[in-house]
């Protein structure tokens, strides 16, 4: 026998279920008057510096059906590549109950330096929860009008054709489209970071 290490095991995850909205965005789902405002409806205050962009997309299951009960969170740097202050840069948004489409209106993040000085290409960290998802899925959104060649995470991707699953496509003036596929053909890259 040896001494016990004494570290605590992480609390196990459980699915957020179909009613996650009443806990995390009650005003969005019509339960007004409990909280003065849902948190992180807008990731940045009005007037924050940077280019305003929007990303629209869907989360698709293995049969290609959009999830209509998913909730997503984003965490990103501001235009200057730094995080915060406070909750700035954090966003919460939900799939439309009819169509499954979600829309994130935010600011284009700047490149984020690593501790070793390498630059990460502009990206938004995305976390997805829903009924049927036992532990929140982490992924990223990059942008197709940036250079990803020096990005440390992109460099880790073994199957290079899968990198496209992390890159939002420009569809117009400051508009991007990005579908997330949970399984099947073109399954999105999910992260264990």
């Amino acid at each position: 026998m040896v001494q016990p290490l004494g570290y605590l095991a992480e609390t196990p995850s459980q699915t957020a279920g179909p009613y996650v909205h009443i806990g995390c965005m009650p005003n969005f789902v019509g339960n007004a008057g409990i909280y003065s405002a849902d948190l992180s409806v807008r990731p940045f205050p009005n007037g924050a510096p940077g280019t305003r962009i929007s990303v629209t997309g869907r989360v698709l299951d293995g049969l290609g059906t959009p999830l209509r009960d998913a909730m997503l969170e984003g965490w990103q740097a501001g235009a200057d590549g730094t995080f915060g202050p406070g909750s700035a840069g954090h966003s919460r948004f939900a799939a439309n109950f009819q169509t499954g489409e979600w829309r994130l209106e935010t600011i284009k993040p700047g490149p984020v330096p690593m501790e070793d000085g390498r630059l990460q290409a502009p990206h938004i960290s995305i976390w997805i929860v829903a009924r049927g998802i036992n532990i929140g899925l982490a992924t990223r959104i990059y942008f197709d009008d940036d250079d990803h060649s020096g990005d440390p995470l992109m460099a880790r991707i073994e199957h290079k054709d899968r990198a496209a699953t992390l890159i939002a496509k420009s569809t117009g003036d400051r508009e991007y489209a990005h579908d997330i596929r949970l399984q099947g053909e073109r399954e999105t890259i999910f992260l264990d970071i």
């Binding site: 915060g84 406070g86 954090h90 036992n134 440390p152 880790r156 399954e187 890259i189 970071i193």
Partner: peptide, 26 residues
């Protein structure tokens, strides 16, 4: 419900970056 909503390919593992090491403060 987990059957069609579960990724089947391995997760991409990497050591954490400033993106995961920071977070919103409420």
């Amino acid at each position: 419900t987990s059957v069609a909503r579960s990724p089947q390919l391995p997760l991409l593992a990497m050591r954490s970056t400033p993106t995961e090491q920071s977070g919103p403060v409420f």
